[in-house]
Nucleic acid binder design. Structure first.
Lengths: 159, 159
DNA sequence: ACTCTAGTATCCCGATAGAGTATAGAGATT
DNA sequence: AATCTCTATACTCTATCGGGATACTAGAGT
């Protein structure tokens, strides 16, 4: 239900959040660590820059860095910037101005359910910022006794 | 975040639920009332039949009808049958067996959030069946003073 | 009663346009 | 020279349309 674009974008921002205050990070570093196709990541970072989430510096020693501290970037904002409104269906979106094409939105019994779904989802995504995510990440890192830059995933193909 | 397929499927099932106990309903009737492209609806109903949600009868007087009472069909089941797992990202799906490609699922700070999102969404969708939706629909119908078969949608052809 | 037939509806196959995913390479900036 | 920036391109998947095959019903004719 989430595009690859958004998935990669969040992973990239997590990476940048973990390296906040440590200078610019290069595209190909992020790509390697987060297992993202380099050229695709390029486009995504460009979009994130356009959205005001990151800054970039060219030339040697350059790379990408967050445009504001991690706690001021919510998951919801990123997902919206990449995939558009969070609503499962356009007619219950609060940010967009779309129709869903149902015969009569006012009497549609489905709309109220979609709206509940949208609200439940938005509550989670808008209620979480990248500082939170960093904290969770480092907790797991601690308990799992794992360290920086696990070069290759251990492929856990259950679910 | 929801495919047209799933959107139309739920509208079609709502229509069939409202006509439960009233004999088969023809594809083109559903299409007209619910404002769905006929040929696309054909495929969708076929899929719904394969999924055991509806039955069909050919020939004159034929059409589609629910395979079980509306209160035994949840929104979640339908969405899953159409779009696959409800999870925003594959690695937190309980029904599917996919990887998300992140370097280390065990320490990924994003996974816990995606999981919360998935659970919030699943709670709503799995907790609602088509009998509920019919009730809501008829309530709104009452308050809006609308009646059967709004012949033409008010045609807002954006989205 | 039995068969034929016309009509009606689902069923199935294939073709098409468009969005999203991903890769490659040349160009611009510091 | 290192790095970001842009443009073009191929591939896949979704949404849609069209044509025709198949199954069922009801009525006409024998």
């Amino acid at each position: 239900m989430l595009s690859s674009r958004a998935k990669y974008a969040t992973r990239a921002l997590l990476d940048l959040s973990l390296h906040y205050d440590h200078g610019p990070v290069q595209i190909h570093e992020i790509a390697r660590r987060q297992n993202i196709p380099v050229k695709f990541l390029e486009q995504i970072l460009l979009a994130l820059k356009l959205g005001g989430f990151v800054q970039s510096r060219k030339g040697p020693g350059g790379g990408y860095l967050l445009a504001r501290p991690p706690d001021l970037i919510t998951l919801g904002a990123v997902v919206r910037a990449m995939d558009g409104p969070i609503a499962p269906i356009s007619c219950v979106s609060v940010s967009g101005f779309h129709e869903c094409g149902c015969p009569d939105p006012d009497t549609c019994g489905l709309r109220t359910v979609w709206k509940e779904a949208r609200d439940a989802l938005a509550r989670v995504l808008d209620g979480t910022n990248f500082a939170d995510i960093c904290v969770r990440h480092r907790e797991h890192q601690g308990t799992a006794e794992e360290f920086t830059d696990t070069l290759l995933a251990k492929s856990t193909p259950k679910e």
